[in-house]
Each structure stands twice: as structure tokens, then as C-alpha cells.
Simulated assay, not measured.
Amino acid sequence: MIRLVPVLLLALTACSTGQSPAPKFEGIDPCTLLASGDAGQLSGSPTRTDRSCDFPFDSLTARLTLLSAKFSDESQKLLSDGGYGGVIDGGQAGESDDRPLTNKCVDASGEVTCDAVVEVRDGQLIGLKVLQRSHDLNVVGQVTQGLAAKAMERLPK
């Protein structure tokens, strides 16, 4: 009996620490987080690929991806390449819940691409890539932040 107790305790410890948490964003369809009117009208149906969804708006395309990663790691990738940090209100109407966001925009021959990441919860992020014909990095950056805020509003709490 004495020999079984340490083995049993070891087995219980292994079970309690070896369990992985529930999958991140379980049951959330990324194609439900943006809608027609968020950045113009949708010019086609959103297309889902695993944890990403491509949204073809009239004037731009946006890819929204649900990520399981550390915000600091994903944010640093954008900051080290000329990005900037900010916050967006991730709360529902009447609530304030500022969430960190990092955004980086580049202009390549009249096409601006903005990459952004916003922290939903620890280890859960929304990634956005927005592509629009424009020369104004600030305008496309603001659109990207607006899309991130819309996605945050539609996430189940």
C-alpha cells in the first residue's frame, strides 16, 4: 500500500498538470466578426480558411485571423518594423475595456497594407491584414483600427 500512494499521487499530479486548456476561440467563426457596412459594402461572400476569414469590401480587402499567441511577441514583430501601439475599446455599449493594439502600415506603389494585432484575452489575439488602394497610411490605419473594434464588439464575452 505504501508503494501505491506515491505512484497514485504522481499519476494524479501528472493528470492535473498535463491537461491542456480548452482550445482558444473554440466555436467562434471568424467570418461572423465583420459585416457589410464595416468598411463599405461586401462585394462578395467572406471566405473562411481554418481560423481566418477574407472579407472582400468594395474598396479594400481584409483578412481577420484568430490567433493563439502572446501579444508581446506578435506586437514586437510589428513594432520592430516601424509599427506603433495604441488601444481600442473592446467593451460592449456602456462599458470601457481598453485593449492593446499594434498596427503597421506600408505603402507599395499606391497600395497600402496594414497589419494589426489586438489582444482579446491573455493568449488570444485578433490579427488583421487590410489592403487598400491608397497613398494615405493614416486613413488605412484608422480603417484597420475600426475593423478591429468592430470585431471585438462581435466577439462573444
Rank of each mutant, 00 (worst) to 15 (best):
R48T: 06
Q92D: 14
G146T: 07
F57W: 02
S20Y: 06
G27H: 08
K104F: 05
G90N: 12
G127E: 09
N103L: 04
S75C: 06
K24F: 06
T113Q: 07
Q124C: 07
A22M: 02
A151V: 11
A93N: 09
S75Q: 10
T17L: 13
K104G: 11
K129Y: 06
G85A: 15
S68A: 15
L42D: 14
A39L: 05
S36R: 03
P56W: 04
L155C: 07
D50L: 11
C114A: 06
L34R: 08
L155G: 09
T102Q: 09
G85W: 07
V117P: 05
G123W: 09
P30F: 04
K77Q: 14
Q145R: 02
R154P: 06
A151I: 05
L34F: 01
F55G: 03
C114L: 03
S20P: 00
G82Q: 13
Y84D: 06
G110I: 01
K150M: 11
E74T: 13
C114K: 04
L8M: 15
V139F: 06
L67M: 14
S43M: 13
K77N: 11
V130M: 02
K129W: 03
V139W: 01
V118W: 10
T47A: 11
A149G: 05
L60C: 10
P56E: 05
D122R: 01
A116Q: 08
N138M: 09
L66D: 08
T144S: 12
N138A: 12
Y84H: 09
M152I: 12
F71T: 13
S72C: 01
R154C: 07
P46Y: 04
G90M: 10
L79C: 09
G82V: 13
P6S: 13
F25P: 00
T65L: 07
P23T: 07
G94I: 10
Y84T: 10
N103G: 01
K150R: 01
V118K: 03
E111V: 05
G44L: 00
E119T: 03
P100M: 10
R48V: 13
M1K: 11
G82N: 11
T113H: 01
S20I: 03
R121Q: 14
F57M: 03
I126Y: 10
G90D: 12
T47P: 06
A14W: 15
E119R: 05
L34H: 04
L131K: 01
S59I: 04
Q41I: 05
S59P: 02
